[in-house]
Amino acid sequence: MTGRIFDIKHFAVHDGDGIRTTVFFKGCPLKCLWCHNPEGLTRPKQLAYYEHKCISCGECATACPAHIISENGHIFDRTKCDGCEQKEVCLCEPLCLGGALKHYGRDVTVDDLMPELLADVDFYKNSGGGVTLSGGECLLQADFCAELLKSLKAQGINTAVDTCGCVPRASIEKVLPYTDVFLFDVKAIDGDVHKRCTGVDNALILENLCFLDSVGAKNEIRIPVVPGYNNGELPKIYEFLSKLKNITAVKELKYHNLAGSKYEALKMENNLPKST
């Protein structure tokens, strides 16, 4: 079994307690207007081009016809790029001398991941940290996550699952036995507000949160606060949360409009609200 990830981040210090390693899974059921990980929105592999870092070295053009070096510098013809979907390794990114090309999307097995996730085990133990699965939405790949989390728990590693909650309950049930804490996003209580901000209804999300609470799972609630979008929801969110019994913490995440360069590099539509 393989999982599709787009990044592994060591020394992640904001994805749960202590020093952690976070695995970012590719693909998400939500399309939040403020999403700062656009490379995690879709499942297909993608190539980002950070133009300001390009030195027009031309190495990429030797490997892939999607890249052309002209008198005006590097031209990236996205119509010819499929993100090396069928290949194990992207052809052009490793050649890029300026670090302008960044490939997102890698299929990995649990055995592939474990050595890298165990490398920082001393840091986890000394800081109360561990491993966090995030995304995108990691639970879209629940079977893989369950297998990975099971292996981590077998090694005594603290585990966290960072989820938007918009997945079938069965997916949550698969990872439940191996998850120490859920980092559960709550964006709105009002269904319309939620749909306007994320593209989907929130009934399933809130249901899943209640389910997790009812079975005694630890939930750290995370509320991205985006002025003009969901800040009016805060009282309702807190009221909703007050009825739950197993909330370990509630964190409001202040919004900043700092992911624009990623959207530009991926040529994805950027609907980021303005920062205040």
Partner: peptide, 13 residues
């Protein structure tokens, strides 16, 4: 640190 996550300085415009 951007919000709930970190990003590399050099990846920012």
């Amino acid at each position: 640190r951007v919000c709930g996550w970190n990003t590399l300085w050099n990846n920012m415009a």
